[in-house]
Amino acid sequence: MPVKFFRYLLPAALLLLAGCHRAMPAVAFHADGRPTMLSDWHVVEARDGKLELNAGVVPYSLNSHLFTDYVHKLRTIWMPKGASAKYTANGPLDFPVGTIISKTFYYPRAADGKFSDVARTLDYSGDFAGQGLDLASVHMVETRLLVRRKDGWAPFTYVWNEAQTEAGLARTGDVQALTLVDAQGGREDFNYVVPDEGQCVTCHEADMLSRHIQPIGPKARHMNREYGYGSGRQNQLEHLVAMGYLMGLPALKDVPRDANWRDPSASLDARARAYLDINCAMCHNPNGVASVTGFSLGPDTPEDHRLGLCKSPEAAGPATGGRLFDIVPGKPDESILMYRMASTRPGVMMPEIGRSTVDREGEVLIRAWILSLKGNCDIVH
């Protein structure tokens, strides 16, 4: 065989071997146990300077995002071959056994900053393009998994190492000292708190009686939007249908849709209700852990005392700040809701877990919404 042939064969063989080395093993569904490393699942992994999604792992986003100290989130869904979720109009999609939902929490890195300096920005446009993250430009914090096992959903939290190469199981949570840096160079030190397993259950416990946990974000009204996949933009629910991951989807005109609370073209009421839905309604609903308050913030709650208008608190105690009602129409500074949103004091702030800073933009939105509400609390409903 001519030497010239080997000259071309060897580089090709080396490239093939390199490609095989980089290939990610198939997603591993663990029906029991608590795998100690995120890579044990092969859902998302750090490879060649990128956080890569495995084959069949579908990224998605929400119309409105839950606030968590300005952290950004990459969400994904994976299901076993031949399995699919069933459409539901109100609650989470009905996912089959074997489903793995992941949510990776990360920050864009602050320009010319230390590793602990992270950017305070709501702009996601430079973070990823449908399929992973550039690890050189982001600071990875944690990846949470919700795994649908035979006996229900199981939560797992993995914290990324400083080398940004792997994440380990953190059953008792974690605390990381970080500094938010805004576009003007303003700095805010805070402690990013990774929740322990008990705190995960608190937010995801959909029914106080059954004590079952379930996903919060992947509901039709939150996912009814377009996403920029590698192959182009498509409605997320229709994309899941095309992937074989969803059945029973009605025409999109018949699917509920929450507003994007940051969309100025949407009405103030729609934006505020969407914000309260994604940030508060997981607990503040008739069956949730805050049902005892009688304060419900779901999208279908009528605009009366059930939504907090002129309603005295049931269990807030000193967290009222001396205010009498959950929401006083036209008077945000007299509303308990506004007081608790603007606080970072344990026992006062709401949500009570999941943040150490104040959502300044969300606070502005809810303040404007309360100012727009008509009526007064002279006559208690």
Rank of each mutant, 00 (worst) to 15 (best):
H222T: 14
P155Q: 01
F190M: 14
T179F: 02
P80Q: 04
H212R: 14
G186Y: 00
L324N: 10
T88H: 12
P108H: 11
P256Y: 00
V289I: 12
E238A: 09
A129G: 11
D182F: 05
V358E: 04
N287E: 13
L373C: 12
L240W: 05
D32A: 12
A167Y: 12
K219L: 08
D333H: 00
T320I: 07
G19H: 12
K73N: 10
G298M: 10
G232I: 03
P92T: 05
V57M: 02
M37N: 01
L16P: 11
A23C: 00
V289C: 04
D94G: 02
G322Q: 01
N191V: 04
P313M: 13
F156K: 06
A251Q: 15
G185H: 06
M282H: 13
Q131N: 10
T104L: 01
S265L: 12
V292A: 14
R120E: 14
P256M: 01
M349I: 01
P299G: 01
N279W: 10
V364I: 11
A251D: 15
A129I: 04
G217M: 08
H65S: 13
G248C: 09
P2W: 02
G168M: 06
P96F: 04
A83E: 12
R367G: 05
H284Q: 04
L53I: 08
L10M: 15
K81E: 13
H305T: 10
K50T: 00
A83L: 07
T104R: 00
T104F: 02
L371P: 00
G298N: 10
D263K: 02
R149G: 08
T320V: 06
N191E: 03
Q184I: 02
V380E: 15
R221W: 06
K4W: 10
R367N: 13
M140C: 09
N224D: 14
L373G: 14
I77M: 11
R7H: 11
T104M: 04
L146Y: 02
Q184P: 03
K311Y: 00
A315S: 14
Q184G: 11
R187Y: 00
P59Y: 02
Y8F: 12
H284S: 05
D196A: 01
C377Q: 00
G152L: 07
L62V: 06
G362D: 10
V141N: 15
D48E: 11
Y60M: 06
A85I: 09
G98C: 13
A46E: 04
S231C: 00
A170M: 13
L276E: 02
V241Y: 14
L15G: 10
M247L: 05
G298Y: 09
G19R: 06
A129Y: 03
H30L: 14
S335K: 02
